[in-house]
């Protein structure tokens, strides 16, 4: 394989993987705290893409402003989902919250169909992100391909700082081990949970925006497949672990892009790799790459 093409694939894999990672972080935070698979998370991601589409293309706002507005609106949606559909079910069996999550996912997708129509809409990319940069050895890259992983890594870095160097971050980590004990320490658990939903939604919004730029279009069901794959990435990395989610996302991105790059005949099976990887890791290391082993209590 030529260097140029390999670098292209590498950058593609890196940006796809970091997008999976950004979404996976939101799954892993919520799951770590509430043991809830937030099925609506992929749809939050879709909302981020739509908001930026409307802000910049329909209302002709500047991209910077549009991105900020989209992130804020998406975060509000994420918080509303928690407040309306999950908070009343905190004490309920976990399946109830899970079904509620499935209901919310259906709702957001179909509400999007009603409001935005089911037609995919093309996204006009800002030209500055698309102008190829040429290197001396013949490698050509578009700025967007580099921007995506850089933004993703910066954001996950910021999240890790928040988790490990601030008080709310400490509380968030504590809650994921033992909600009751954390409450005994004077922590308002619901606020911290809301913070986790807010942060997760903001990251999903960023991922959605970058996804809309990379595959330049938006449609109501665009969150479904990336959502499930990002969840798989979170499980793969060890659910509950933020670095694990990012690593899981990157591995998934690389497996998908590289397997098709090296074995083009397998392209039809591309979506199966994620699930195959998932099942393999669950069988051989059920807690994921960075997950902690939990002792059964009898």
């Amino acid at each position: 394989m030529e260097l140029n093409i390999f670098v292209q694939h590498f950058i593609n894999a890196l940006s796809l993987g970091s997008l999976y990672g950004l979404v996976a972080v939101g799954y892993t935070m919520v799951y770590g705290i509430l043991r809830l698979i937030n099925f609506a998370h992929g749809d939050i991601f879709m909302l981020g893409a739509y908001f930026v589409y409307f802000a910049t293309i329909v209302y002709k706002l500047n991209w910077g402003v549009g991105v900020v507005i989209a992130i804020i609106l998406t975060t509000i949606c994420g918080l509303l989902v928690d407040r309306i559909a999950y908070k009343p079910l905190r004490e309920a069996p976990r399946i109830s919250a899970l079904i509620s999550a499935i209901g919310v996912s259906f709702f957001i997708e179909n509400f999007a169909v009603v409001v935005f129509t089911g037609m995919p809409r093309p996204v006009v990319q800002p030209p500055i992100l698309m102008k190829p940069i040429e290197f001396s050895n013949g490698v050509r890259l578009i700025p967007l391909g580099i921007l995506v992983p850089v933004v993703a890594f910066l954001l996950v870095g910021a999240l890790l700082w928040l988790l490990y160097c601030t008080k709310p971050g400490l509380a968030m980590r504590a809650i994921s081990f033992d909600i009751e004990t954390t409450r005994m320490m004077g922590v308002s658990v619901n606020k911290i949970i809301a913070l986790a939903f807010g942060l997760g939604s903001a990251l999903a919004a960023v991922a959605g925006i970058m996804w809309a730029l990379r595959y330049p279009r938006v449609e109501p069901f665009m969150g479904m497949t990336p959502g499930i794959k990002a969840f798989i990435a979170a499980v793969f990395g060890g659910i509950g672990s933020v670095p694990g989610a990012m690593i899981g996302g990157l591995i998934l991105g690389f497996v998908e892009i590289m397997s098709v790059a090296f074995f083009p005949t397998l392209s039809g099976y591309k979506d199966a790799f994620a699930f195959l990887l998932l099942i393999l890791i669950l069988l051989f290391r059920p807690t994921g790459l960075l997950g902690e082993k939990l002792e059964d209590k009898i």
Binding site: K167, L170, A171, R173, A174, F177, D178, E180, T181, T182, M184, M185, G186, V187, E292
Partner: peptide, 23 residues
């Protein structure tokens, strides 16, 4: 100080104490 200690296992000693002073 609850029954069974309920130490947060993945946090350091210092973090456990800091959490105690959360308010």
């Amino acid at each position: 100080s609850p029954e069974g200690r309920r130490i947060l296992p993945q946090l350091t000693v210092e973090e456990n104490l800091t959490l105690g002073a959360y308010i």
